[in-house]
Amino acid sequence: MSLELEGVVIRAARSDRPLFAPLTLTVAPGEVATVMGPSGIGKSTLVDFIGGHLSAGFAPQGRVRLDGREVTGLPAEARRIGILFQDALLFPHLSVGDNLAFGLARRIRQAGPRRMAVEAALAEAGLEGFGDRDPATLSGGQLGRVALMRTLLAEPRALLLDEPFSKLDPDRRRQMRDFVFDHVRGRNIPVLMVSHDAEDAAAAGGQILRLSELAN
């Protein structure tokens, strides 16, 4: 499985000027590639485009292929591309366990195995017994780990990381980074991170691409 971007150009609907120079990139399974660039250049917009969340205010060109199959025209829910942001974005009305169950793939049908999968994910995040907790009572690091687990339980075919560590202080940042990279490498899926942080990019260990503004 690999994630391929081909000739991706995004412009705001009312503007002729693309946000960045055309982007072509292939991320291999198990690789964590990084796209870097100054803030405001459209890194998050790129993530939205790949994931299928781009709002009507943008006019994109180019293709996104997953494992050779084009997904550019598919709705977000059919792409199976996970996204992690710096905010965990857990659903506030659901318990921690139910957040995970919401993400858990439908492949597992029966209640018993589903509950066990959720328990296992909690254990993996070092949060045994947190299933009934209110997400609002968790610390930032705990929230981040639950968010990653929720995303992985959905069995994504690719993963996007949008500045996932930028809110954490240096110590936590390293811990969280290790946790995320360890878990995603084990899944053997392509991972694309956008970041403005060189240390994050180096830790990722994959190819590094710099978005640049279009020369006039």
């Binding site: 939205d48 709705p75 977000a76 829910e77 792409r79 659903f91 919401f102 993400g103 959905a154």
Partner: peptide, 27 residues
């Protein structure tokens, strides 16, 4: 309502109706 919250539901495979019933309306 935070649009990214709804986007998360989509990345987890929830279609538009499930996003409405299970995420937007309860929140």
């Amino acid at each position: 309502l935070d649009r990214r919250m709804v986007g998360q539901a989509a990345t987890l495979g929830a279609g538009p109706w499930r996003r409405l019933w299970a995420v937007k309306l309860p929140i």
